[in-house]
C-alpha cells in the first residue's frame, strides 16, 4: 500500500513537472494577459505613465468613432465574402482532382502552391501584379477589359484584396479531397440502383458526407479572416481597407493608447465568439455526422 502510494505521488510529481512549461506559459502568456487586458480596457494608459481608471469610457468612445465602424464593416465584408467563396473554390478543386486525370500530382502541387507561400510574399507579389499598369490588367486587356487601378483606387482595394485571398484558397482542397475519397462506394451504388443521376448523388450523398469539413472550414475561416492584419498593413495606410486588428495595432503601438486598444481587442473577441456560436447553431440544420446519436 505504501509502495503504491509512493508510486502514485511520484507519477503526480512527474505529471506536473512535464506540464510545467505549458502551465507557466498558460499563466504568464494566456490567462494572466487575458485578465490584465480586461482591466486595461477600463483605463487610460500610455505605458509611460501610470494608468488611470476611466470606467466604460473607452467602450463608449469606441462606439462613437466612425473609424471603428469603417474597420468593422471592412472586416465583416472581407470575412463573409472570402470564407464562403474560399470553401467553394477548395471544394471545386477537390472535385476536379478526384476525377480520373493524368498528371494528377502536378495539378495537386500547382493548386497547393499559392497557399504555401508566406503572406508577406503573396501580398507584395500581388501589389506588383495589380499595379495599374501591371500584368493582371495587361491580361485583362487581352480580353478587351480595361482594368481598374486596384490598390490605388479606394473603391477597388477590397476587391483586389479579396481577389488574391481567393488565389490562396485553392489549397483548401486537401481536406475536401480526403473527405471525398472517404465516402463509401456502397452509398453511390445504392443511389444508382434507385436511378439517381450525378447531381442528385452529389447533392444527397457527397454534400452531407462533406458537411463536417465545410463547418470546420467555415469556423476557422471566419475566425482567421477576422484577424487579418499583414495584408492590410502592407498594402498601405488608406482607411478604405482598414480592418479591426489594424485599427487595434495603430492605437496600441503607434498611439500607445493601451486602454482604448484593449477595448477594441475585447469587442473583436466578442464578435468572433458570437459568429462562431451562430455558425455552430446554424450548422445543426445542415451538418451530417455519421456517428451521431440522433435525439
Amino acid at each position: 500500500m505504501a509502495v503504491r502510494n509512493r508510486m502514485r505521488r511520484k507519477e503526480t510529481a512527474f505529471f506536473y513537472a512535464f506540464i510545467s512549461p505549458w502551465l507557466i506559459g498558460f499563466i504568464l502568456l494566456s490567462i494572466g494577459p487575458i485578465i490584465a487586458s480586461f482591466f486595461i480596457s477600463f483605463t487610460s494608459w500610455n505605458i509611460f505613465q501610470p494608468p488611470t481608471w476611466v470606467g466604460l469610457k473607452n467602450y463608449t468612445t469606441l462606439f462613437q468613432t466612425p473609424l471603428f465602424y469603417t474597420s468593422l464593416d471592412n472586416t465583416l465584408i472581407y470575412a463573409l465574402v472570402t470564407t464562403p467563396l474560399g470553401i467553394l473554390i477548395g471544394l471545386a478543386v477537390a472535385v476536379l482532382l478526384n476525377q480520373k486525370i493524368v498528371f494528377r500530382n502536378f495539378f495537386r502541387v500547382a493548386f497547393i502552391l499559392p497557399s504555401t507561400l508566406p503572406v508577406v510574399a503573396v501580398t507584395m507579389l500581388w501589389s506588383w501584379l495589380l499595379a495599374p499598369a501591371g500584368l493582371f490588367n495587361e491580361v485583362l486587356q487581352l480580353f478587351g477589359i480595361k482594368g481598374p487601378a486596384w490598390f490605388v483606387d479606394p473603391a477597388w482595394m477590397k476587391p483586389g484584396l479579396i481577389l488574391f485571398t481567393l488565389w490562396t484558397a485553392g489549397g483548401g482542397f486537401v481536406l475536401f479531397l480526403a473527405g471525398l475519397q472517404g465516402v463509401p462506394d456502397y452509398l453511390y451504388e445504392a443511389a444508382e440502383l434507385d436511378g439517381a443521376d450525378a447531381f442528385t448523388k452529389f447533392r444527397h450523398i457527397t454534400m452531407p458526407m462533406l458537411s463536417p469539413i465545410v463547418l470546420f472550414n467555415l469556423v476557422t475561416g471566419i475566425i482567421g479572416s477576422m484577424q487579418t492584419f499583414t495584408q492590410v498593413y502592407i498594402l498601405g495606410s488608406s482607411n478604405s481597407l482598414l480592418m479591426m486588428v489594424v485599427y487595434l495595432f495603430q492605437n496600441a503601438f503607434q498611439n500607445f493608447s493601451m486602454g482604448f486598444a484593449s477595448a477594441i481587442a475585447w469587442v473583436l473577441f466578442v464578435i468572433i465568439m458570437l459568429f462562431s456560436l451562430l455558425v455552430f447553431r446554424w450548422s445543426s440544420m445542415w451538418v451530417y455526422y455519421e456517428g451521431e446519436i440522433k435525439r
Binding site: 494577459p33 487586458s37 484577424q227 493601451m258 473583436l268 468572433i272
Partner: peptide, 17 residues
Amino acid sequence: STLMIPGEVTMIPTFIM
C-alpha cells in the same frame, strides 16, 4: 479552451510585460 483565445486579446499585456 486556450485554442479559442484570439492572439489580439493577449497581445497588449504581453507587450507591456
